[in-house]
Amino acid sequence: MNPSLLRPSRHAIAAALLATVGLLPAAHALEAGQPAPAFILPTADGKTVSLAALRGHYVYVDFWASWCGPCKQSFPWMKALQAKLGGPHFEVVAINVDEQQADARRFLGDAPAGFTVLFDARGATPAAYGVEGMPTSFLVDPDGKVVLVHQSFKDSERDALAQKIAVLVGGAQP
């Protein structure tokens, strides 16, 4: 057999072996400067919202779950952020990753959002964004590029983070 014909099959075998034992590198978390993966997700009332439709806005994309304590703390903060910066330049979009939407609805009953909440029970969007902990948020600029990644939510960071976002968003306003 021609050895050159064997080479690709060796690679294929190696790849198959790695794949079967789960050693292929996992998707990495998005970093600032990378394009934000597109999403089209439903709201609670059956409408859909896509990231593409928000082109031209700064979008604060937050991944949250009802079982995540810090997510609960972040909701009033995001509400205030939306109230302060929301408008033609800025939008908070919180993507719920609960497998049962009823859990999310219960959570929202306790902590009304005041910003756009979308649902992704299948987890395709957090996978595309490479979310490594809950909550994780991404600030996407008007061109669809990630400009800020923030994992977790601590009370001690709330002012500094809001300030950072205000500066980034404020720079784009005419």
Binding site: G22, G123, M134
Partner: peptide, 24 residues
């Protein structure tokens, strides 16, 4: 044989849940 062995032996392996799959 190697591929089959790997496929069979990893059949019971479980991937760690992703951060968004920890609801339960």
């Amino acid at each position: 044989i190697a591929i089959t062995a790997c496929a069979v032996s990893s059949g019971c392996a479980m991937q760690a849940p992703k951060p968004w799959q920890k609801g339960v």
